[in-house]
Simulated scan of single mutants.
Amino acid sequence: MDREDGHDPGGDHDHGGDHGHADGESISRLLRAWRARVDARTVPELRGVSPRPGRRLSQRHVARLTGVSEGWYRALEAGRRHDFSEGFLLRVARALRLSEAETLTLFLAVSGRRPPETGRTPAAPPAPGLPAGVRTLLERQVGCPAYLSDGAWNIVAANALMGAWFPWVLRPRPNLMRWALLHPEAREQMLDWDDSCARVYLAMLRVAANSDPGNAELRALVAEILDADADCRRIWAEEHDVVEHRDGHVFRLCLPYHDHREIRVTSHVLLPIQRQDLRFVLITPVDED
Score class of each variant (00 low, 15 high):
118 T>H: 11
174 P>Q: 00
287 D>K: 03
112 G>D: 09
45 E>W: 07
203 A>N: 04
23 D>G: 13
252 R>I: 00
188 E>I: 09
274 Q>T: 12
2 D>V: 01
211 S>N: 05
76 L>E: 00
103 T>Q: 11
86 E>R: 00
212 D>E: 14
21 H>I: 03
28 S>I: 01
30 L>F: 08
167 P>K: 01
266 T>H: 13
151 G>E: 15
156 V>M: 11
223 A>E: 15
74 R>N: 14
12 D>W: 09
260 H>L: 14
114 R>M: 10
63 A>H: 07
100 E>D: 15
196 S>K: 04
144 C>G: 15
70 E>I: 10
283 I>V: 15
234 R>M: 03
210 N>I: 04
172 P>I: 01
249 H>P: 08
266 T>L: 15
102 E>N: 02
130 L>N: 12
269 V>Q: 10
264 R>F: 13
51 P>A: 11
57 L>Y: 01
183 H>R: 00
100 E>F: 03
250 V>H: 12
225 I>C: 06
120 R>L: 15
139 E>F: 06
62 V>F: 12
34 W>Y: 10
281 V>S: 15
131 P>Y: 07
260 H>R: 11
169 V>W: 07
61 H>A: 15
121 T>M: 06
9 P>T: 04
246 R>M: 15
87 G>N: 09
202 L>A: 04
117 E>A: 12
105 T>V: 05
250 V>W: 10
121 T>S: 09
155 I>N: 02
43 V>L: 12
48 G>I: 02
73 Y>A: 01
186 A>T: 04
75 A>L: 06
20 G>R: 00
61 H>T: 11
199 R>V: 08
163 G>A: 12
205 L>M: 13
198 A>P: 08
237 A>C: 01
8 D>W: 14
161 L>A: 09
100 E>L: 10
108 L>W: 00
13 H>V: 13
117 E>P: 04
20 G>Q: 02
177 M>G: 02
128 P>G: 07
27 I>W: 02
207 V>P: 12
25 E>C: 02
78 A>P: 03
114 R>H: 05
30 L>H: 01
109 A>P: 01
104 L>N: 04
257 Y>G: 06
92 V>R: 01
179 W>T: 03
152 A>E: 11
267 S>Q: 14
277 D>H: 11
170 L>R: 07
79 G>S: 10
90 L>E: 13
32 R>E: 08
274 Q>R: 09
268 H>Q: 12
60 R>C: 13
198 A>G: 05
251 F>W: 09
66 T>Q: 00
194 D>L: 09
